[in-house]
Design a protein around this nucleic acid. Structure first.
Lengths: 210, 210, 210, 210
DNA sequence: CATGAATGAGGTTTCATTCAT
DNA sequence: CATGAATGAAACCTCATTCAT
């Protein structure tokens, strides 16, 4: 499984640093627009204008509007990953590490809720090949939790049948992300803290940790 | 909370039975198209042709493409609800009813997975006012489970703090629906039965049912 | 050799008579524009406006700008053919028929000079498959003269080796058409009549008719 | 009639030798591209890249894409002229010189067929003023044959009314060039040699040379 | 002298919607 | 009530040209 697969998007501009910088400009302008109006209702000219560049310049750095969407998805995933991996968490055992990680993940989902939602809603507009890459990334993030669960299994702090590891990891992710895609209901009734604690409790039950 | 709120969509055609019939035609053609190509990439002309009517006729029965999307969402919700309520489940107590209901719901999600996914992905294209109605319906379905939980609390078969009822109901829904929106990962590793049983187990833990 | 091969251009409009009529409108507007400014410098919007229809309507009747070019070429060829075949020429023998036909062809080239030129200059902008059809038509027209030459050979009024028939036919066509594509030089020095008679003389030499 | 009229194309670069050299680079790259894809479908960037220079540099040596086309036409004409005039043909009289010249011309057309075709097809994309220059050159080349005809008239080896000289010269050119622009038909049936001999015969008839 | 990043006017095409029949 | 021809706003994208470095 090739990790960190990235789609190389050709650019007519040669200087890689410039490409990086301009694309960041574009992506950051685009996320906001996509969050606001959705991918389809955002025009390329709006993206260009919001990026502070001309429409022609935009197309010097990518090849299609779908490329923008891909870059946005990749950007969001990298933001998530950055937050999940930036500081090595100190924990006594796997179970504690898990709890801390879940809390950090939920906080991150809350912080990036518009972005997380965006991925949920616009991902299907990607061309199939690109979609696969984005889902792969999603799986990689899931794997972060699978690894933690595994480490807990090894040190005995987590009891979980091996075949359940993957599913539990997915559950963690989904129960986190639902904080955004069900926010119209959840935010009315629960604070992020209440929500987090309750879901942590639920998830801990799953791993037979009394 | 007005139950079963429906948006009345004006039609130039007067005979209500005809309206009903034609709209069903339209909706059933549209769901398939939306599932296949997404809302935005489906044209009104395609919808008309697949419905077996002319494009002009289409607009006799609704006012915009978004109306089709709304009707499709409503149709899907009604299909889900039909399956969830068609046969009164016989159970000794709330807990058993809950388990049976969850299984039924998961089976339903599996059966209608394309439709459920559709709601997840295209809902955001609805105009805000209409979106609210769709979310309301989603909440109604959630409430079905909240009610079951409540009944279990009343007969003592379920132990759950009152403030956790809503959340647990949402969890049930989301853990069911994730079978569709994470199918790219889950279907590779689990059968519907394995998946269902595992998630049921998890959810039962939540309600302290030993 | 399939004669009169035509490319069927799909139309979203069903009524074939209407399609025929509108396409004629479009084509006649387009020829003038193409003659004036060339294919590439003419915009689809100009074509629509000159046709007296909206740009959207234009695309109801064809699928691309190249389709317009093809229709224009087909139209021009049909105009040429119409003139060449409308009245059966009365002649004593093949030789006389040939002379009369040449004169008629030259007159036709003169009358349609802008159109003939257009085919010379814009044909290469057609997609390969379509280009083939247009060249086929050009060959068909050439064949008209090959047939006449053949008839003269049969009745003895024309002496020409069989293997030279095709080439002579091409010569007739080209010596006619050059009246348009070299007009910048020829029209300065010769009238159509002078030109025609001189070229007829030349061509008659070729067929050893003293 | 000013002979060898050339349009001076301004260059921002001062060194005339460098200008000459770079322009040759550009032109030779451009002909191939134009032959391949046509003038309109070739981009200036492609021309620059194929020339081995930057797009900015390209514009140091000319002022517009049309300039490239003009230079290409001039280049082609000079190539033709070079071949037609490089070796002084030795002949007994005008008639023989004519025949040798025709053969040489046809061979040249065959050798440069893509280029000759290019001039036929893209010339109309030149701005009017420039077009005139190119046509003038075309006429100059025609004049080469008119001169030969004239010399034959003087030495009695060619009988041709003075008013027919120009036309005959044009006929020679066109019957040569048609080898390229009707190649889709001619090359199927005739070899260059067959073709040449047949057309030479025809043309000799025209000048009453028994 | 050489470069290539930046630009925006303008190209082709689509498609939701209307309205006369 | 049914139809589909007509429409034009607006979408995405290209590319000749400029100009600061």
């Amino acid at each position: 499984m090739s990790k960190d697969a990235k789609k190389p998007i050709p650019s007519r501009v040669l200087d890689p640093q410039l490409v990086e910088a301009r694309r960041l400009q574009i992506v950051q302008a685009a996320v906001e627009l996509f969050v606001d109006k959705g991918f389809h209702k955002t025009t390329t000219r709006e993206i260009a204008k919001a990026s502070g560049i001309g429409i022609g310049t935009l197309y010097e750095y990518l090849q299609s509007k779908e490329d923008v969407l891909y870059l946005v998805c990749a950007y969001i995933h990298s933001e998530v990953e950055k937050r999940l991996t930036e500081a090595r968490l100190q924990a006594e055992n796997g179970r504690d590490l898990l709890v801390m990680s879940i809390r950090r993940f939920f906080a991150c989902v809350d912080e990036l809720q518009d972005y997380v939602l965006l991925i949920y809603q616009e991902t299907k507009s990607l061309p199939p090949e690109t979609l696969k890459l984005v889902l792969q990334k999603e799986e990689e993030i899931t794997q972060l939790f699978a690894d933690i669960l595994e480490s807990g299994r090894r040190d005995g702090s987590i009891q979980l049948a091996p075949q359940h590891v993957k599913l539990t990891a997915h559950n963690i992710i989904v129960l986190g992300q639902m904080w955004t895609f069900r926010r119209w209901a959840l935010h009315r009734h629960y604070s992020l803290e209440e929500y987090t604690e309750r879901q942590v409790t639920l998830l801990l039950h799953e791993i037979h940790s009394h």
